[in-house]
Amino acid sequence: MVANKTAERPLTAKPVVSERASSGTGNLALDARDVHVFYGDFEAVKGISLPVHEKEITALIGPSGCGKSTLLRCFNRMNDVVSGVRIEGQILYKGQDIYASQVDPVAVRRRIGMVFQKANPFPKSIYKNVAWGAKINGFKGDMDALVEKSLRQAALWDEVKDKLHQSGLSLSGGQQQRLCIARTLAIEPDVILMDEPASALDPIATSKIEELMLELKENYTIVVVTHNMQQAARVSDRTALLWLGELVEYNDTQTIFTNPSQQKTEDYITGRHG
């Protein structure tokens, strides 16, 4: 896998707060600090602080409506496009506050890519699906090589190399999801946010996605929202349990699933609650 080089790119045309970017956060890729999210009067996320470590998989779990997807979307400013949303607190990406006024949200999303619950390839060829993001970002290099590299990283190349110009929609659900991951990787992000990436897939396709996540964490930081606690247990390094907008417990995954410190965590992961 080729190391991505995005970490050095600034979030704006001119680097801002670059001194802070290089200090204070250690090996954190993201650092949510006292984040509140309001949809109108409703407070969906209530003051969550959550450090996300580099080149690890961090899982956000919790019952529906607990705020995990809302929090995930804060990490690359996807909530900006939802009307009536107000966000307080800070989210630092390598020490830079991604909500600072001079930060370009598009630049944020180039570094912090996202994969959604339902695979959403464009009704274009497999090749164009992968090349699209790089093209609109002004990529001037060898596009064929970039497409191949991204598809290989997404563990899809061998399955599609002979039909790159067929529609992305002709692929199976699991392949479409891996195509979307390849599309995200082609932008050469640093962090990949995944919102229920396997919930619409069968167990074999789910396994392939989980396998891919484990391979990708060698080079990328991954934050995944999942309803599937077993998936969080299998693939993640750290797990955070959210409940009604609050962070109940955040710890290494082994501890969360063998000896959590909070009764609510114990009840949730043992199926007694939620």
């Binding site: 077993q230 247990a233 299998r234 995954t253 082994q254 699933f257 063998t258």
Partner: peptide, 9 residues
């Protein structure tokens, strides 16, 4: 054993 059962099912 506990970790393997809890995390790898």
């Amino acid at each position: 054993v506990v970790v393997t059962i809890a995390t790898q099912q």
